[in-house]
């Protein structure tokens, strides 16, 4: 009886397969080196989408911890009220998951940007707000009046609660000439409301002819 190994076809097949495996392995190895993607780790990417208010409304102490929680799958993407639906959609895009509506437990999305403002007459200089501020945007010392550096304030309102004399208010940043811009036109169905069909017909070419004649 012939041994299985003495069959030349089998040997050729083994050699061919091994050869192919080595070849493809080499090609794949080369490709993985050559086209290496030096992407940000996912946490970085998530963190860069979050609004960095560090407000903790998501239940995590800051944006980065929340990003880590999302990346590890322990938190949903819909817990960031300052970022609102836009951030949720962005995250959904990045992570290829369904865009959920904002979690009502975390809070509501506010339309306006706000900054903290300290009513200086009332401030007793307790430094509690300074300790609460996640971005060191409050200036002051014990028994000295405090003030908010507006340009650094993220509007997280974490300083409001600790103040013993309730002297911190969140004020809305008003739209000024520098940040005004046009908004998108209303949807077409809104434009049509109360619109008469004859209005479309009368703006046709006929009109210019009259105007030309005039």
């Amino acid at each position: 009886m012939q041994s299985a190994f003495s069959d030349p076809i089998l040997i050729f097949a083994v050699i061919a397969l091994v050869g192919l495996a080595v070849l493809f392995g080499a090609v794949l190895g080369f490709a993985s080196e050559k086209f290496k993607v030096e992407g940000d780790p996912i946490v970085e990417q998530i963190d860069s989408i979050l609004p960095q208010t560090q407000c903790g409304q998501c239940g995590y102490p800051g944006c980065r911890p929340y990003a880590q929680a999302i990346a590890s799958g322990e938190a949903n993407i819909n817990r960031c009220p300052p970022g609102g639906q836009a951030t949720i959609n962005h995250l959904a895009d990045l992570l290829d998951v369904e865009a959920l509506p904002l979690d009502a437990e975390s809070g509501v999305e506010e339309e306006e940007t706000k900054v903290a403002y300290i009513i200086e007459d009332l401030c007793i200089g307790c430094t509690k707000c300074i300790q609460a501020c996640p971005v060191d945007a409050i200036l002051g010392a014990a028994k000295q009046m405090h003030t908010v550096i507006t340009s650094e304030c993220t509007g997280c309102d974490l300083c409001v609660e600790p103040c013993p004399v309730d002297c911190i208010e969140m004020i809305t940043v008003e739209e000024g000439l520098s940040n005004w811009h046009w908004t998108l036109p209303p949807s077409s169905s809104k434009q049509i409301e109360g619109f008469k069909i004859t209005d479309v017909i009368t703006t046709d070419r006929v009109k210019t002819k009259q105007d030309d004649a005039a």
């Binding site: 963190d47 979050l50 609004p51 960095q52 208010t53 560090q54 800051g62 944006c63 980065r64 996640p134 971005v135 060191d136 945007a137 650094e152 993220t154």
Partner: peptide, 13 residues
């Protein structure tokens, strides 16, 4: 602004 806030937050941490 948010990049700036992130830097400050991290510096504070």
């Amino acid at each position: 602004k948010s990049d700036h806030a992130r830097l400050r937050f991290e510096a504070r941490k």
